[in-house]
Write a protein that binds this DNA or RNA. Structure first.
Lengths: 242, 242
DNA sequence: CGCGTGATTGAACGATTTCAAAAGATGTGG
DNA sequence: CCACATCTTTTGAAATCGTTCAATCACGCG
């Protein structure tokens, strides 16, 4: 496995240092000056996962902290009978692995092939002590996530199936824009099932609503899992219950 | 209004300093040593609200940061047509008012008579600079909130009405225990409508499920909005989909 | 006592789910 | 490059859980 090979050779950052990282600036690391980066590079390991592989499992001891550098992952919680709630999708520059009581409260699974930076908890905490601005940035990003979670509660609790799908598409488009990419088309590599488990619908209903929006000329499905928003304003209007 | 009277007279902490605060230790303030508390006491204002009064409004500029010291408040988001999602209930020691882009992303309304500590944003940020452990504590509490939000997404997206109500009761009982109070009976001063807007049900369905649990002997409704959990383990089992 | 608010209960309805099947996409090995 | 196996999406029809609409009940308060 790539991870083990990298670990055996020591931190891979020595070979491909953070200086060349495509998501630096957007991620937590963005607050560090170039001359401070080496402290981070010293403790980072690069990790790969393929489609459907697990990264962390709900309930496991939280030994690591991760930043996504490439690909998409899902954050999910399970009920005993197999019902699943996806609580978020992670794109490059997103982080995960903060744990309160020492155990992860969710699982993370690769939706596509996935590249990650992994930091050991102890060494990462030491770094936070050394650079308080890292903690400041972390609080900022956690606040953002909290706001996104609350928005998603509104989607889950009070929106119709049609509004849910429109919200999902608008949210991804907006996120794409925030990350410096075009707001359309958006890359949606997750299955209808993954999406349904995110917005609280079944695979079938999710598919039906996508089809409906497509027939209405609001979206177009392109090759390579790209979806084009043909009328972003109208989609946003639908998403907002209008 | 109490708030204005207090403001005119200067920080009320001079009269009733943080040293006597019932929720210190549980709240953010808990990390400060007694001799550091006066720095906090200097910038705090005590604020009161009555039943149904608004504390902050979604979209307003975020000038303040609050800690609940007494009573219960609801955190909510609205859709244009009036649909409401309650994203959380605030009990003593909870905080709110962190804002990312300078505006509140939710409204906060008093469910009961409510007592709050209010901090002006600027002065609070200055204090964080001075005491980094405040920020550390804030990150810890934000992480907790984030985990609670994700748990609530599971409730909203994937649980049945019966499981939702059982989850709500179990959650409040657990929270009561964490705050050093008995896990039963729990104080539930919010209406069936408030609860329904929190767990994604109508008033009627919420009421029906409460009645059902009562008839099954799992809960008892006591005077003064207290609800007793007669079989916490079974309620938890129901909540977990079991 | 009468009013207003919130809780409860009943009955009909409907949006989404469930069950079932077929069509389309993707990847593998020969 | 094809044929097969697997996974995903789509579509249809029936069933269901929660909603909606409406009426009644219960409690606190002026």
């Amino acid at each position: 496995m790539n991870e083990n090979a990298a670990a055996a050779a020591g931190p891979t950052a020595a070979i491909n240092p953070c200086g060349a990282c495509p998501v630096r600036g957007l991620a937590v690391c963005g607050v560090l000056e170039p001359d401070e980066l080496h402290a981070l590079a010293e403790i980072v390991h690069e990790v790969q996962r393929v489609h459907r592989q697990s990264v962390i499992v709900e309930g496991d001891e939280a030994h690591n902290f991760f930043i996504v550098t490439g690909g998409v992952a899902s954050v999910e919680k399970l009920l005993a009978d197999g019902r699943r709630q996806v609580v978020g999708f992670l794109y490059p520059s997103d982080f995960f692995g903060l744990a309160i009581d020492g155990c992860y409260a969710y699982s993370v699974t690769a939706v596509t092939n996935l590249s990650l930076c992994r930091f050991e908890r102890q060494r990462y905490l030491a770094l936070i002590d050394r650079f308080p601005k890292l903690e400041h940035r972390l609080l900022g990003m956690a606040s953002n996530e909290l706001a996104a979670s609350q928005e998603q509660m509104l989607v889950l609790g009070r929106k119709t199936a049609r509004e849910k799908v429109a919200s999902f598409l608008s949210m991804l488009s907006e996120r794409s824009r925030r990350l410096g990419r075009p707001p359309s088309p958006v890359w949606i590599p997750m299955t209808r099932g993954d999406i349904g488990d995110y917005i609280g619908l079944t695979t079938e209903t999710t598919s039906r609503k996508f089809t409906q929006l497509r027939k209405e000329g609001l979206i177009a499905v392109l090759p390579d899992a790209m979806i084009e928003l043909l009328d972003p304003a109208e989609l946003k209007r639908i998403a907002d219950g209008g």
